[in-house]
Design a protein around this nucleic acid. Sequence first.
DNA 1: TGACAATAGTTCAGGCTGAAAGTAAATTGC
DNA 2: GCAATTTACTTTCAGCCTGAACTATTGTCA
Lengths: 140, 140
Amino acid sequence: MTDWGVLTRMWKLMRDLRLEVTPALEEMGLAHNDHWLLCAVDEHHYPTEIVNATKFPAPTVSQMLKRLEALGLVERSLDKSDLRRYRFDLTEKGRQADEKGRRLMEAAVRRRLSRLKAREQQELIRLLDLMVQETPVTKE
Amino acid sequence: MTDWGVLTRMWKLMRDLRLEVTPALEEMGLAHNDHWLLCAVDEHHYPTEIVNATKFPAPTVSQMLKRLEALGLVERSLDKSDLRRYRFDLTEKGRQADEKGRRLMEAAVRRRLSRLKAREQQELIRLLDLMVQETPVTKE
DNA sequence: TGACAATAGTTCAGGCTGAAAGTAAATTGC
DNA sequence: GCAATTTACTTTCAGCCTGAACTATTGTCA
């Protein structure tokens, strides 16, 4: 069945990409998901927004931010206009880690994606895009 | 850049599929990766083979098998010809859980895949297949 | 045969994840 | 103005995951 075929192939692909990239990320002190968080902090500066963007559970984000803060990759500051809120920003070190992680991951993808012709790459993106769209939540 | 685009889309897709399917799997007492293990046990009956097939670390497989055994989904038996080895098989209950999990995951994929035309679905599989092929390991 | 290496799998300790509960500030409604 | 509710985020705790070290059995070869 096509459904199963697509699922297993994607699963293997993501798994293998992760296996390729994890050792290098670990040398930087990053757990495998940390890089996605850095990306999120780069454009969403508040925990709630980061939760919405990444769909990681709130406590996970809280812990990750605490850890990344301890590593000096993100910086926490109080929002004077609403004392419940913390603002987070990438530090210079954080920006570099983000850059480097991103290059690593891109390189891993490119090794595989380069097997496709340019037109096929475009087509792949288009098809993935169709699938990524939100499915309307069905109520019960 | 195309590489990044493909990566982020696939990441989101897998994440969302997982979020959709996890609650139902949890009701069955399964953690999010357990289903892949059941699939593996269905055709590879020894831990070492399961490690190779899934690329989960050996201790992970060991723990998962112990847990699934406690749930009555897999069955452990000693290999008389090599006392270091254990053989694992799905129980009837395990086969049913495998079936059910698979139907759940297929349904989740189908909801998204059905947005593509039949020919596009075939094309997607073909492109994914090209990417999944093992990259020869570069020695240093 | 008997020492040494290789193989199969497990145990353990520590880190990551996430549901539930907690704290603190802001907002709402009377 | 002030109790009740909402919002923002954190802490707690239990469970899953995994690298390192371990046990037990088999294979090798002198």
